[in-house]
């Protein structure tokens, strides 16, 4: 059980990383990763919604007729998004302001839909929590990495602290929309290059192991 939990969790974090592997949720990824605080905040908000909605949808998966399942998912997801929005407005008004419309838009975030449809609707609640947690944190990590690159190159700061010195001329493009596409593409190249090497190594090891068994 614990093993399965970890496996599902790691699957979302790395192997099926929603940003770099599934290429889901591109709209918030490109839009909010202008500063580390935004990326991190967006990721954590999505993680919360994802874990809760996965859990609830998995609980009700046997009662909801399949014809009305999408509206039912939306009601569940929208409930948690409303909770997140109210909490952010109350306790982190600055973050809530800078994320703006993208918080309510979590309702239609395709990562959440994809996980509800592809995982929570078919699996038990505990695995669904693991999946939500893995996918959510995978999304959070990707957003944090992307926004760190963009904030560092674009403004020379990290989380608002000047890292590259006061004389660093910010490469403004990286905080603008084209910089989002550029950073996403180049980071995805790096991620896939590293993952490809790891996969190849794993496959080689497996082949060797199978060979010795035979």
């Amino acid at each position: 059980m614990a093993n399965k939990f970890t496996k599902t969790f790691l699957n979302g974090l790395v192997n099926e990383n929603p940003t770099f592997r599934l290429v889901l949720g591109m709209c918030p990824t490109l839009a909010v990763t202008t500063a580390v605080s935004n990326g991190l905040g967006m990721g954590l908000a999505t993680t919360f919604v994802l874990v809760c909605s996965n859990f609830v949808i998995s609980l009700i998966r046997n009662f909801v007729p399949s014809k009305v399942r999408i509206p039912a998912y939306i009601v569940v997801i929208a409930t948690f998004v409303t909770v997140v929005q109210m909490v952010l407005e109350a306790f982190l008004p600055a973050l809530s302001e800078s994320l703006g419309l993208f918080i309510p838009l979590i309702v239609v975030n395709c990562i959440i839909f994809a996980r509800a449809e592809a995982f929570a609707a078919k699996n038990d609640p505990v695995s669904s929590i693991a999946d939500g947690l893995g996918m959510g944190l995978g999304f959070t990590c990707s957003l944090t990495v992307l926004s760190a690159v963009r904030e560092l190159i674009g403004a020379g700061t990290l989380l608002g602290f000047p890292v590259l010195g006061a004389n660093y001329p910010g490469v403004l493009l990286f905080v603008l929309a084209p910089g989002g596409y550029l950073t996403l593409g180049l980071t995805m190249v790096a991620f896939n290059a590293v993952m490809g090497k790891i996969d190849a190594k794993r496959a080689a090891r497996q082949a060797a192991a199978e060979g010795s068994v035979a």
């Binding site: 001329p169 490469v171 403004l172 493009l173 990286f174 603008l176 084209p178």
Partner: peptide
């Protein structure tokens, strides 16, 4: 175009 968007003043 990259430079124009990145360093509008310079």
């Amino acid at each position: 175009a990259f430079l124009l968007a990145s360093f509008p003043v310079a």
